[in-house]
C-alpha cells in the first residue's frame, strides 16, 4: 500500500496529497501523522490538497479528525490549496469543516501557523 510522505519543516509538518487516495491510505496517513507529531513535538501541520480534484465525505472526515487529534497533541492544522470546484462541492454535500483552519496556499498557511505559534507562546508565558 502506498503511504503519503510527511515532510518536516522546522516546527511544522507538511503533507502534500497528490494521489487519488484509497480509504486505507487515508487511515494510514492519520496514524503516521499522529506518531510523527508525538515524536517530533511539531506545533503545526499543513495539509496541501491543491493537487486533489475530488474530496468526498470520507476524506473530509479524515481532515476534520486530523485537525481535532492534532489539537490534542498541541499542534494546529491548516488545510491549504482547496480548489474552487472542490470547495463548492463540499459545501453542497453539507461539509463546511468549520473546525478546520484554512489558507490559500502553503506559504500563507505557514504564515498563519507562525503567527498562531507566536500568539500561543506569548499566552503560555502569561
Amino acid at each position: 500500500m502506498e503511504r503519503i510522505p510527511i515532510l518536516r519543516m522546522g516546527k511544522f509538518l507538511l503533507i502534500t496529497i497528490q494521489v487519488d487516495m484509497h480509504d486505507t491510505t487515508a487511515l494510514a496517513l492519520q496514524d503516521d501523522l499522529m506518531a510523527k507529531i508525538a515524536r517530533s513535538g511539531a506545533r503545526g501541520v499543513l495539509i496541501d490538497i491543491s493537487a486533489l480534484d475530488v474530496v468526498d465525505s470520507y476524506i473530509g472526515r479524515m481532515i476534520a479528525d486530523i485537525s481535532m487529534m492534532s489539537k490534542l497533541l498541541h499542534a494546529r492544522t491548516v488545510l491549504v490549496g482547496m480548489r474552487p470546484a472542490v470547495a463548492i462541492t463540499l459545501v453542497e454535500l453539507g461539509l463546511s469543516l468549520r473546525g478546520v483552519k484554512t489558507a490559500l496556499d502553503v506559504e500563507k498557511g505557514m504564515e498563519l501557523l507562525a503567527a498562531a505559534l507566536e500568539d500561543g507562546d506569548a499566552a503560555d508565558q502569561d
Binding site: L79, V80, G81, M82, R83, P84, V86, A87, I88, L90, V91, E92, S96, L97, T102, A103, L104, D105, K108, G109
Partner: peptide, 12 residues
Amino acid sequence: LKTVAAIRLMGA
C-alpha cells in the same frame, strides 16, 4: 451562506 462557506474552505 454557501458562497461564504466555500470561500472559507479555500482559505480566504
